[in-house]
C-alpha cells in the first residue's frame, strides 16, 4: 500500500482535480464569486468525497461489477443529502449562497471519478487519504479562484475591504464571464511555469 502522505500530496499537487485533470468544472466556475463560497464548496465536496470513497472502498467486494455506477451514485447522493442537512442546520447563510450547487455535488465528476478510479480498487485507509487529497486539491483551487475574483471584482478578501473605496471595481469578475477568464488566466500561468521547467 502506498504511503498515505504521498496519496494526499498526489491529490493536492500532482493530480490536482481542477488545474491538472480539469474535472468538476461546474461548481468551480459557479460558486467562486467569493473566497468564502469557494472554500465552503470545496470543504463540502471534500466531506462527501471522503465518506463516499470510504464506503465505496468498503463495499467494493460486494457491489457487482455491472451495476457499480448506479451503486456509486446512490452512495454519493446519500452523503450529499447528509451534507446538505448539516449545512442547513449549522451554516444556513453558506447554504443559501451555494443554493442549487449543493444538491449538484452528486454529479460532480470528481467524486464519481475517484470512486471508479481509486476507491473501487484500493483499501479503506488509502481511499480516505485519496479523498482528503483530492478534496483539499479541489478546495485550494476553488479558494484561489474565489480570492482572485473577489479581490478584483469587489475589492474585498474574505468579506474584509482591502482596496480603497475610490478604486474602481471590475464588477465583471464576480459575474459569470469573470469565472471563465480567471480560470483561463490561472491555468495559462500554470502552463507557463510548466513549459519553463521543461525548457
Amino acid at each position: 500500500m502506498a504511503n498515505p502522505i504521498k496519496i494526499i500530496k498526489n491529490g493536492i499537487i500532482d493530480e490536482n482535480p481542477t488545474f491538472i485533470q480539469v474535472i468538476g468544472m461546474c461548481p468551480t466556475l459557479a460558486v467562486t464569486s467569493s473566497a468564502i463560497n469557494g472554500i465552503g464548496m470545496g470543504l463540502s465536496t471534500t466531506a462527501v468525497l471522503i465518506f463516499a470513497n470510504l464506503f465505496v472502498s468498503l463495499l467494493r467486494k460486494i457491489i457487482p461489477d455491472k451495476v457499480r455506477i448506479p451503486c456509486f451514485i446512490v452512495v454519493i447522493a446519500t452523503f450529499v443529502t447528509i451534507v446538505q442537512f448539516m449545512l442547513q442546520a449549522y451554516l444556513p447563510s453558506l447554504n443559501a449562497s451555494l443554493g442549487l450547487y449543493i444538491p449538484l455535488i452528486v454529479v460532480n465528476c470528481i467524486i464519481l471519478a475517484r470512486a471508479e478510479a481509486f476507491a473501487s480498487k484500493n483499501g479503506p485507509i488509502a481511499s480516505i487519504c485519496d479523498g482528503i487529497g483530492m478534496g483539499l486539491g479541489f478546495t485550494v483551487a476553488l479558494g484561489i479562484l474565489g480570492l482572485v475574483r473577489e479581490f478584483i471584482g469587489a475589492g474585498t478578501l474574505f468579506d474584509v475591504t482591502v482596496l480603497p473605496e475610490a478604486f474602481p471595481k471590475t464588477l465583471l469578475f464576480v459575474m459569470a464571464p469573470g469565472a471563465f477568464f480567471t480560470l483561463a488566466c490561472l491555468m495559462a500561468l500554470l502552463n507557463h511555469f510548466r513549459n519553463k521547467k521543461k525548457a
Binding site: 480539469v22 465583471l172 459575474m175 459569470a176 464571464p177 469573470g178 469565472a179 471563465f180 477568464f181 480560470l183 483561463a184 488566466c185 491555468m187 495559462a188 500561468l189 502552463n191 507557463h192 513549459n195
Partner: peptide, 23 residues
Amino acid sequence: TPKAFDGFPMALVTAGLMSIAFL
C-alpha cells in the same frame, strides 16, 4: 495563440467572451 494559453485556457477565454455576449 500564446503558448501558455494552448488548449483549455483558450477555450475558457472563448467561453468567457460568449458569456459576455449572452449578458
